[in-house]
Amino acid sequence: DVPLPAGWEMAKTSSGQRYFLNHIDQTTTWQDPR
């Protein structure tokens, strides 16, 4: 597995969808940043 870039975290919604948190610029995205 390729690790997420620095500052990123993967999370899941209550319905189980994956999303990605960027802690550096305080954004979220559905797109995997890798």
Score class of each variant (00 low, 15 high):
R18S: 11
P5T: 06
T27P: 01
T27N: 09
S14T: 12
E9K: 06
Y19H: 03
M10L: 10
L21M: 09
T13A: 09
A6D: 10
Y19S: 01
W30R: 00
F20I: 02
G7R: 08
S15T: 11
S14G: 12
E9Q: 12
S15F: 13
T28I: 00
V2I: 13
D32E: 05
Q17L: 08
R18C: 08
I24S: 10
R34L: 02
D1E: 14
T28P: 00
T29P: 03
P3R: 14
W8S: 03
N22S: 08
G16A: 05
Y19D: 01
Q17H: 11
Q26K: 15
E9D: 13
S15C: 07
P3L: 12
D32A: 10
I24T: 11
G7V: 02
H23L: 00
M10T: 11
E9G: 15
H23Q: 00
D25E: 14
D25G: 13
Y19C: 01
K12Q: 10
N22H: 04
W30L: 00
Q26R: 15
L4Q: 05
D32H: 09
D1H: 12
Y19N: 02
V2G: 15
I24L: 11
T29K: 04
S14I: 12
P33A: 01
H23N: 04
L4V: 08
D1V: 15
R34G: 03
W30S: 00
A11D: 06
R18L: 11
T27I: 09
S14R: 14
L4M: 12
L21V: 10
P3T: 13
A6T: 13
D32N: 08
T13I: 07
G16S: 06
A6V: 11
H23P: 01
K12R: 11
P3S: 14
W8R: 04
M10I: 08
A11S: 10
T13P: 03
D25V: 12
D25N: 15
F20V: 03
Q31R: 15
A11T: 07
Q31L: 08
A6P: 12
Q26H: 09
G16R: 07
L4R: 04
Q26E: 05
T29A: 06
T28N: 02
A11V: 03
S15A: 13
T27A: 08
V2F: 13
Q17K: 04
R34C: 03
I24F: 09
V2A: 14
P33S: 02
Q31H: 14
P5Q: 07
K12N: 09
I24M: 11
R18P: 14
Q26L: 04
P33Q: 03
A6S: 11
W8G: 02
A11P: 02
I24N: 14
T27S: 10
N22D: 06
L21Q: 06
S14C: 05
Q17P: 04
D1G: 15
R34S: 04
Q31E: 07
Q31P: 01
R18G: 06
S15P: 05
H23Y: 00
D32G: 05
R34H: 04
P3Q: 13
N22T: 02
D32V: 09
W30C: 01
S14N: 12
A6G: 10
F20L: 02
G16V: 02
E9V: 04
N22K: 05
G16C: 06
G7C: 07
W30G: 00
K12E: 10
Q17R: 14
P5R: 05
F20Y: 12
M10K: 13
I24V: 10
W8L: 03
T29M: 05
P5L: 06
H23R: 03
T13N: 07
V2L: 15
M10V: 11
D1A: 15
D25A: 15
G7S: 06
L4P: 05
N22I: 00
P5A: 07
D32Y: 09
D25Y: 12
Q17E: 09
N22Y: 03
Y19F: 04
F20C: 01
R18H: 12
D25H: 14
R34P: 01
T13S: 08
D1Y: 13
P5S: 06
Q26P: 02
H23D: 00
M10R: 10
P33L: 00
L21P: 03
S15Y: 15
G7D: 05
F20S: 01
K12I: 08
P3A: 13
T29R: 07
P33R: 05
W8C: 02
P33T: 01
V2D: 15
K12T: 10
G7A: 06
E9A: 14
A11G: 08
T28A: 00
T28S: 07
Q31K: 08
D1N: 13
G16D: 07
L21R: 09
T29S: 09
